Computed example of a mutant assay.
Amino acid sequence: MNDDKHQIILQAQVWGSVGEQQTLQPAVTQLKQQLDKLRAPHSATKHTIKFTADSGFNSEANLAFMAQSGFDTYIADNQFRKRNPLFKESETYETEQEKRRLKRRNGKPRLFTSADFHYDETTQICRCPAGNEMWCSGDNLKSHHQRYTRFCGYLKDCKVCPLQEQCMRKPPIKTGRQVQFKNDESRKQLSYIDKMKVKIDSPMGRRQYSKRLGCIEPVFGNITVNKGMNKLTLRGQAKVNAQWQLYCLVHNIEKLQKTMH
């Protein structure tokens, strides 16, 4: 894992597993520990960190974990390109129904509804599509013979939220986004995968996720091509991990040396 501005590697680890999905959670945990060490102790503001990963890490368990991580996460599914309006001229990627919808809204994505918010009735915790926790502004409210629970986003979060245009019709002034849920156990819960599809398909989501290629691939290119590490020459997880981290260390020294000049 590396940052997109200087391409400094912040987390490097060999996990010794064939699949990659199960490596996300321990890797992010290590990353957060690294960031806590690097963060200034008297920092006045904390910017929300944007985190991207390829579709190989997209799973319900991983997205549920990232929703609690505090990162602004973008992990696409393996069908996200087929839903991209850039391919609207191709019948393979865009249906006629979606074309008509985009035409009616001048290409703008649909606004978030209550179904796009994650509400856990057991813990009474609600999180918006951007992953921010909301506060309960009313419990067991009654309207039209139906009882509701209402949540409101914190104004400080809504004002700087990258999904604001898709969430609110007007920029927030006094209060953040409000959403209410019926007190009904049978209310359908959208999965984290479905919510991530909505986020990735938004203009902000596509723009943010498109940066991933230029962020991570040059790092692998530098190590494998320029540094000549196109295969691991040792055996055993401990040795392989040491070899990989040494190459990452050399990469970081080179990047830091360039930023100092």
Rank of each mutant, 00 (worst) to 15 (best):
I253N: 02
A40M: 10
R169V: 11
Q178H: 11
T224E: 12
V219L: 06
D184N: 15
C215S: 15
H251T: 11
L141W: 04
G228C: 02
Y247M: 14
R101W: 06
K108H: 09
E165P: 00
C161T: 04
K99Q: 13
L256G: 10
E89D: 15
Q79C: 14
L190Q: 14
L38W: 13
S69C: 08
V28P: 04
I200L: 04
G221H: 05
R177A: 13
C161I: 05
E98C: 04
P129R: 09
G107A: 07
Q7G: 04
E91C: 11
I9L: 13
T23N: 14
D116L: 09
R207K: 10
Y119F: 15
G138P: 01
G221Q: 01
K32D: 12
W244Y: 15
I253C: 14
M260R: 14
M204L: 02
T259P: 00
Q68R: 13
Q243C: 06
S59D: 04
T48M: 04
Q243L: 08
W244D: 03
R212F: 08
H42V: 08
T95C: 12
P129N: 09
D116G: 07
Y93C: 15
D201T: 04
C128M: 05
E89C: 07
D120H: 03
V198K: 11
S210Q: 10
A67F: 05
N62H: 09
P203E: 00
D54G: 07
A76K: 07
Y93R: 13
H118V: 10
F117C: 07
S202R: 05
Y148C: 00
Q178D: 10
G205Q: 06
T149D: 12
G56A: 11
N62S: 09
R206A: 01
Q166S: 10
K195F: 03
M260W: 15
F51I: 07
I9C: 10
E96Y: 01
Q97M: 08
P129W: 10
A242H: 10
S137F: 00
N58K: 06
K258G: 09
Q146C: 03
I200M: 14
F220A: 04
Q25F: 03
D3Y: 02
K227G: 01
G205R: 08
Q22S: 15
P218F: 06
Y154Q: 12
A238L: 06
K197P: 01
V28G: 07
P171C: 02
P26R: 11
Y148K: 01
K174P: 00
K156A: 14
Q34G: 15
V14T: 13
K174R: 08
R110P: 00
H145T: 03
E254Q: 12
N58C: 15
T175P: 00
Q245T: 11
Y247L: 13
Q7R: 13
R206W: 02
V240S: 08
R104D: 11
G107H: 06
K199P: 00
